[in-house]
Design a protein around this nucleic acid. Structure first.
Lengths: 297, 297
DNA sequence: TCAATTACGAAATGATATTGACATAACCGA
DNA sequence: TCGGTTATGTCAATATCATTTCGTAATTGA
């Protein structure tokens, strides 16, 4: 039963003081119930114990219990309209699964874009580009592909970038080469993989500075990480989405390029020349892509 | 200034503990900030005074002051649902590079989500899941990670999935095993890689059915492909984005799961058991993630 | 009008929260 | 490697809160 219903129908014969409180709580439901019991009492013009007695009468074990239910309702009310907001344009429901998924993921991205903390990107950018040692990349079963992608970009930006790939027994051998001067970038999303966590912990013990990409539930790696980049992953799908994490990766790369333009340009040009010379990319009618693409299209 | 803005931009260089709190508060904003400071501290894994110090740093006289503003915002939001739209404020222009990028990518995604053609997903789903032979995955320098990710998912859905990884000279040896019964899924975005194109063409000649993920300028592979999935890649960045392509990949997987539930569930459960038995994932307080995750958080 | 019952507030209490002071640990520059 | 600095947890003091107890006022039924 909803809290609101209990307020309206839960009391067969409310006393005058009770009526005052109920009226106040319903006035701008559910916000008025969010403060302390004392505040409610004062605003309703009754004494503190009367409020306590009321919630007890309504069947709650305590005022805290009552407030917890109120919060749960508020959460439901706050979450669903937010996520439905943009979906309403389309008579959702019998939409195609694929399009529904992309819409859902897009909404998640929009939600995420308002919660980005730029400062952490600055810090990670600084750490990764200034690290005197090497930069190692590690990921879980799926997230390792994010690691690989970031490794690909970083390799264009600086030397000494190493993608550890799949975490195997041999991977642990790499630990002996890792130390204070190095940085380890870990991707770990639920369900957190024990080998990734163990490797990260051992690296942290060796003084390696850790950067962690994870979900809001925080991988255990977070404990030893210097910087933690959190991204939402939930969508209307049995699987979690990697779109927000990928957005973080790409945003970080964009930031690095913006900050270290001169240093990177030289390096990228050399790469391009090497690739060109070996005919790696199609020469013909291709547009200038990647790092050198023109911006006017 | 809104509380949320202070959280995202109020700290030029948040300390690790501060970052933890900020992320928690943003995670399900603004509800997570409604409890007591002690609750927040416990959930963020920091001490009570650290929370108090943070709100002080953000310019609030006290924690109560901070919470009062939070409540005021919540009230405004609840009273006029239209205000929720206003939350999508227009960036001032001198926005941080990282956030500007994510906003840009989000807009690209929103644009893309209106242009999805569901039919092609159905066709690809059918082709991939019904193919009597094997399913091969191939990608370019960066896009091969998308291929790897899709390979990871597909491997859970059916047998005979092979990620070809980096296109090397040895990769071409695999051609001899490929034939009419097989499917090759190619990821090729500008700049199109000649080895990927050549491999795909030769596969097509052998009767392998091709599925191509590419950008609007169409990789040369498109000529011999049975199905082509196009996704926009341009953003406000020197690099192209892989967000829309990744969204396609994830949407395809979601579709497959939705269509082949029974068949897949058995397979996934077996995988899970094997992983469980070998302690691959953290056993403790981890939520049930991925395919078996619960949806009530 | 009276007595019994219920409602209610004042004060007290035990618990909890906030915040300041202090100490330790981590970090940074030399 | 070593001071100086900052960050952060521990402890303690104070304030506040929820809740119990008790006494009084209001209400009800005869």
């Amino acid at each position: 039963m909803r809290v609101r219903d209990k307020l309206t129908d839960g009391l067969p014969a409310p006393t005058p003081a009770e009526a005052k409180i109920v009226q106040l709580l319903l006035a701008d439901y559910p916000l008025s119930g969010l403060g302390t019991a004392a505040q409610i009492a004062k605003r309703a013009g009754v004494s503190d114990p009367t409020v306590a007695r009321l919630v007890a009468k309504l069947g709650y074990a305590s005022f805290a219990d009552f407030q917890a239910e109120l919060l749960a309702e508020l959460e439901a009310r706050l979450h669903s309209p937010l996520l439905m907001m943009e979906a309403r344009r389309v008579p959702a429901g019998d939409d195609h699964v694929a399009r529904a998924y992309i819409r859902s993921a897009t909404r998640r991205m929009a939600d995420f874009s308002d919660k980005v903390t730029p400062a952490i990107f600055d810090q990670v950018e600084e750490l990764v580009m200034e690290a005197p040692g090497r930069v190692y990349l590690l990921g879980g079963r799926f997230s390792r592909h994010l690691a690989g992608m970031l490794a690909g970009y970083l390799g264009q930006f600086r030397e000494g970038v190493a993608d550890l790939g799949l975490c195997s027994s041999e991977t642990f051998d790499r630990l002996v080469d890792m130390g204070r001067r190095d940085v380890l970038i870990v991707f770990d999303y639920r369900r957190y993989q024990s080998d990734v966590v163990r490797f990260s912990e051992q690296a942290a013990e060796r003084g390696v500075r850790l950067v962690l990409f994870t979900d809001p539930w925080l991988s255990p790696v977070a404990a030893g990480a210097l910087h933690v980049l959190v991204a939402p992953v939930e969508v209307e799908s049995p699987y979690d989405t990697f779109l927000p994490p990928l957005a973080q990766v790409e945003a970080l790369c964009t930031l690095i390029v913006a900050r270290r333009q001169e240093r990177i340009e030289k390096r990228v040009v050399e790469f391009e020349n090497a690739r060109e010379a070996n005919g790696v990319t199609m020469s013909g009618a291709t547009m200038s892509g990647a790092a050198t693409k023109d911006r006017n299209s």
